[in-house]
Simulated assay, not measured.
Amino acid sequence: MLVLTLVMAAVGFALLVVALMTGSVAWAWGCIVVCVIGAVLLLVSSLRGPAPATSPRPSPRGGGPDHEDPPTERFDRPE
């Protein structure tokens, strides 16, 4: 969704340039509409939070997320 927001910002800037070059109010209103849509998309994207990962990365030790590391110290047991 961030890419779509960046595209909307680029289109809005292009419409602003065209509006300034031609002196047309219609192009300026188009710029405003596109920029408001981009702002709404950015707001929705930020409220949704980060996107979940598509696939979990494997652990370097080969275990899954429930894998526990072996203890690093050995304790003597009383007999």
Results as ranks from 00 to 15, higher is better:
Ala51Trp: 15
Trp27Ser: 05
Cys31His: 12
Ser46Arg: 14
Ala39Met: 07
Ser45Trp: 14
Ala14Arg: 06
Gly30Phe: 06
Ile32Leu: 11
Ser45Phe: 11
Pro56Gln: 05
Leu41Glu: 01
Leu16His: 06
Ala19Lys: 03
Met21Ala: 09
Ile37Thr: 13
Phe13Trp: 15
Ser55Lys: 09
Val11Trp: 11
Ser24Gly: 09
Val36Arg: 01
Ala53Gln: 07
Ala28Gly: 09
Leu15Arg: 05
Cys31Phe: 11
Leu20Lys: 10
Ala53Tyr: 04
Ala14Trp: 10
Val36Pro: 02
Met21Ile: 05
Trp29Gly: 10
Ala19Thr: 03
Ile32Tyr: 07
Ser46Leu: 15
Arg61Asn: 13
Ala14Lys: 06
Pro56Asp: 11
Ser24Tyr: 11
Met21Ser: 05
Val40Leu: 13
Val25Gln: 08
Val25Leu: 10
Pro50Ala: 13
Ser45Asp: 15
Trp29Thr: 14
Ser45Ala: 12
Gly49Cys: 03
Pro60Trp: 12
Arg48Asn: 06
Ala28Met: 14
Val40Cys: 05
Val33Met: 14
Ile32Cys: 05
Gly38Ser: 03
Cys35Arg: 03
Gly30Leu: 01
Pro58Leu: 10
Gly38Asp: 01
Pro50Gly: 10
Val25His: 10
Cys35Asp: 05
Ile37Cys: 14
Arg61Cys: 08
Leu42Pro: 00
Leu15Ala: 08
Gly30Ile: 03
Val40Arg: 02
Cys35Glu: 07
Ser55Tyr: 05
Thr22Glu: 08
Val25Trp: 11
Leu15Ser: 09
Trp27Val: 00
Arg48Ala: 14
Leu41His: 06
Pro56Met: 04
Ser24Glu: 14
Pro60Asn: 02
Leu42Tyr: 03
Gly49Asp: 03
Trp29Ser: 13
Ser45Thr: 15
Trp29Lys: 11
Pro60Ala: 08
Leu41Arg: 00
Pro52Thr: 09
Gly49Lys: 05
Arg48Val: 11
Ala28Tyr: 09
Ser45Gly: 12
Val25Asn: 09
Ser24Ile: 04
